[in-house]
Design a protein around this nucleic acid. Structure first.
Lengths: 340, 340
DNA sequence: ACAAGGATGACAAGCGATTGCCAAAAATTG
DNA sequence: CAATTTTTGGCAATCGCTTGTCATCCTTGT
């Protein structure tokens, strides 16, 4: 008396069920599904049909247990809220999905401890890591890189494979732009002290302004959030500069709001250049002149670099460094320097 | 002669290594770590020390294999790019992390097929699902809900446990607001045809405008992106309405841009009300009057509902429905109706 | 037509944890 | 001090799948 048992809830079909239905051994099923060609075509088709009929999906857990791989990549970002990382997440997601990987998203809340912790805790559950704007020290990062495959985004190339968004060269473009508008008193509005990008941008700013013999100021560090914009704007205005190069768009947008509140006209009284060209930079008021980065592409490239390391057989030159070009996008937040 | 073997790369310590170092059986280690109290305190401490010394992390794969659980929840959103979902992701992430779960992020690209596919494929790798603004049909959704634990966000409560953001009542507030400003010719700018939220908003709009005997128009459906805003704006203007209630902020912001291009002043010639109060709604030009939703909280509540289902022992009343209140946030995109 | 070689598929041993069962040890009691 | 109860911890089976080994069967060449 055959028991009819379809969809006994919670009970998932196993490779054994498929083998039984197809009348073969489980090993044959395994090979037929993951290594076709090792199995007779007719048999394989029979197995595939049985699998489809049972709605069979292999358990990634069991599969990972023997293979030691999880087909999973963890993406660590300092702040999920920040649109900049959205684009990275999106690019990574896209590329991972295409390669049959799953994305584990982790928000490290701008904390080096949380980042290190996640790196440890997830060591076993992810095949590799993408560290966007890591807040780790060089030493911590080197240690982590020695333990597991990882690719950083916007971090010194010496330590681990990395994708660098070339904002320093964009800084030069931005300065060129400001100078051509007649500005000579320029303020750098700094981001988080632990940010490598911030350090690089500041360095480029200093070098270039020194060479051009410009009068410069700097304020900060500020948290990269719109809410820090008010303090940043006030500080920048106080310096007497006529133009600001701001760590990122989030902060710049916050400044824009504050300046309007205070009746300081942008760009008439003060020009503002942001960085990243995030969502919103084009429709804020006034639209923001900013250094546009191919952020999503950076996420994609980072994943590619990681995957080519994880699967060397698929080749792909395992570069240790990818530099993403940037360019200045001029909108309405920059204009001629005010006449004194 | 003891071999010194620290950090043999790629080789992770197993429970056996810990057992050996501590001089006990693996089962004792397992119990000591996951069920303290079943093991002598002294022994447990010895084991914990050994584990710490080896930097041991249990393999979630192996653990999952025997327990059948993955400590993982998949969050499916139609469009990672949309800031609305960012907040949901963020809320979910927060709550999941607090409960020791990991978030699997999936972008279903506004496609019901991809959504159904992900639901199938990840059946084994996630303990449960959060479906934000599912594009599935009721039938598909019911089937999916029968197969695995899931919680929907903004979907009819009859089918699966759900968190509903009460935008219909916000629509009424918005209409009240517009009427009080003297508007009587109001246009509904519709979102995706497959969106349940859109249907509910449209229904609320119709009921309320009928009751108030207002002259109404509707245009759409439009994709919920800023780039669709141009077409939406043109269509809305063409109706002759003096105010628009727009499916969501993304579309509304796109409309704002187009209207400015065309020299149609907001709010002087046309008032615009958005929905969701996403990132950017406060700094676009003009700042957008919108129906603000506690989106992040919705993500959190959805996770709570799911987890209380996954872990009934921890109790928590397993509600099938949570309604999140909304309210109108008035900014500068609405104003008095133009005199004819 | 027969041997050599290649395809094919069954068996069984892991992968790293959990857990039921039971024996040994410790604590409690009369 | 013996008897009984309670703790403690070891053995081994199990979760679902992969993979090395090897016997069997089918091709193909001479």
């Amino acid at each position: 008396m055959a028991e009819l048992q379809l969809q006994s809830p919670g009970k998932q079909p196993t490779i054994r069920d498929v083998a039984e239905l197809a009348g073969v051994a489980t090993s044959t099923v395994s090979r037929a599904l993951s290594n076709p060609g090792r199995v007779n075509r007719v048999t394989r088709e029979r197995i595939e049909e049985a699998a489809a009929q049972l709605n069979y999906i292999p358990s990634s857990q069991a599969r990972g247990l023997s293979s030691g791989r999880t087909q999973t990549v963890a993406v660590l970002v300092p702040d999920i809220t920040n649109p900049f990382y959205f684009d990275i997440i999106r690019g990574a997601q896209h590329q991972l999905k295409a390669a049959g990987y799953t994305q584990l998203l982790v928000d490290t809340e701008e904390s080096a401890e949380m980042e290190a912790d996640a790196l440890q805790k997830m060591r076993r559950s992810a095949d590799g890591f993408i560290l966007a704007a890591s807040r780790l020290t060089d030493a911590q990062l080197a240690e982590a890189a020695a333990q597991q495959p990882l690719v950083t985004i916007n971090r010194a190339p010496a330590i681990a494979p990395t994708v660098v968004i070339d904002t320093p060269s964009a800084i030069i473009q931005a300065l060129e732009h400001l100078v051509s508008l007649g500005h000579s008193r320029i303020c750098f509005v700094g981001g988080p002290a632990t940010s490598w990008s911030n350090a690089k941008r500041w360095q480029a700013f200093q070098e270039e302004t020194t060479e051009r013999k410009l009068t410069t100021f700097s304020v900060g560090p500020f948290a990269p959030k719109t809410t820090s914009g008010a303090a940043a704007a006030d500080a920048a205005v106080h310096t007497g500069a006529t133009a600001c190069i701001v760590f990122n768009d989030l902060l710049a947008i916050g400044m824009l709001q504050r300046l309007r509140e205070r009746g300081i006209r942008v760009p008439d009284d003060m020009s503002i250049v942001g960085c990243d060209d995030i969502f919103g930079a084009d429709f804020c008021n006034p639209p923001l002149t900013t250094m546009a980065s191919p952020i999503e592409q950076a996420g994609r490239v980072a994943v590619s670099m990681l995957l080519s390391r994880l699967n060397p057989q698929y080749g792909g030159t395992s570069r240790r460094l990818a530099v993403m070009p940037t360019h200045l996008t001029v909108r309405a937040s920059t204009g001629a320097a005010p006449v004194r």
